[in-house]
Amino acid sequence: MCFHTIQNKLAVQIEKRFNAKIKDINEFAPHEHFNGFTFPKTPIITDEHPEVIEHYNWGLIPHWAKDDQIKAMTLNARIETVEEKPSFRDAVSHRCLVIANGFYEWQWLDSKGKNKVKYKIGIGNEELFAFAGLYSHWTDTHTGEIKNTYTILTTEANELMAEIHNHKKRMPVVLHPEDELRWLEGAPIKEFSFPYSVNLIARK
Score class of each variant (00 low, 15 high):
Phe3Arg: 07
Phe3Cys: 14
Ile6Asn: 01
Val12Lys: 09
Val12Tyr: 02
Glu15Thr: 05
Phe18Val: 01
Asn19Lys: 12
Ala20Lys: 04
Asp24Met: 00
Asn26Val: 00
Ala29Gln: 09
Asn35Ser: 14
Thr38Gly: 06
Pro40Asn: 02
Lys41Thr: 05
Thr42Ala: 13
Ile45Thr: 09
Thr46Val: 06
Glu48Gly: 02
Val52Lys: 07
Ile53Cys: 02
Ile53Val: 14
Glu54Pro: 00
Glu54Gln: 13
Gly59Arg: 11
His63Thr: 12
His63Gly: 03
Ala65Thr: 05
Ala65Tyr: 03
Ala65Ser: 15
Ala65Gly: 05
Lys66Glu: 14
Asp68Ala: 14
Gln69Gly: 15
Gln69Pro: 00
Lys71Ile: 04
Lys71Gly: 02
Ala72Gly: 03
Thr74Asn: 08
Leu75Lys: 09
Ala77Val: 08
Arg78Asp: 15
Glu80Gly: 06
Thr81Ser: 15
Val82Ala: 15
Glu83Val: 06
Arg89Met: 07
Arg89Leu: 10
Val92Pro: 00
Ser93Pro: 02
His94Trp: 01
Cys96Phe: 03
Cys96Gln: 08
Leu97Tyr: 04
Leu97Asn: 10
Asn101Ser: 08
Phe103His: 10
Trp106Leu: 09
Trp106Asn: 13
Gln107Gly: 04
Asp110Met: 10
Ser111Leu: 14
Ser111Tyr: 14
Lys112Asn: 14
Lys112Ser: 13
Gly113Glu: 09
Lys114Ser: 14
Lys114Cys: 03
Asn115Ala: 12
Lys118Ile: 11
Ile121Glu: 05
Glu126His: 13
Glu127Tyr: 10
Glu127Gly: 15
Leu128Ala: 13
Leu128Met: 12
Phe129Val: 11
Ala130Phe: 08
Ala130Leu: 08
Phe131Leu: 09
Phe131Glu: 08
Ala132Tyr: 09
Gly133Tyr: 10
Leu134Lys: 03
Ser136Tyr: 02
Trp138Ala: 06
Thr139Tyr: 00
Thr139Met: 13
Thr139Ile: 14
Asp140Cys: 10
Thr141Ala: 11
Glu145His: 12
Ile146Gly: 05
Asn148Ala: 03
Thr149Met: 04
Tyr150His: 12
Thr155His: 10
Thr155Gly: 06
Ala157Arg: 02
Leu160Lys: 02
Leu160Gly: 08
Ala162Gln: 07
Ala162Asn: 07
Ile164Thr: 08
His165Asn: 15
Asn166Cys: 09
His167Val: 09
Lys168Tyr: 12
Val173Trp: 05
His176Ala: 06
His176Ile: 07
Glu178Gly: 01
Glu178Asp: 15
Glu180Lys: 12
Trp183Gly: 10
Trp183Arg: 12
Glu185Arg: 15
Glu185Gly: 01
Pro188Phe: 11
Ile189Cys: 10
Ile189Ser: 11
Ile189Arg: 01
Ile189Gly: 01
Lys190Ala: 14
Ser193Phe: 01
Phe194His: 11
Pro195Gln: 03
Val198Cys: 13
Ile201Leu: 07
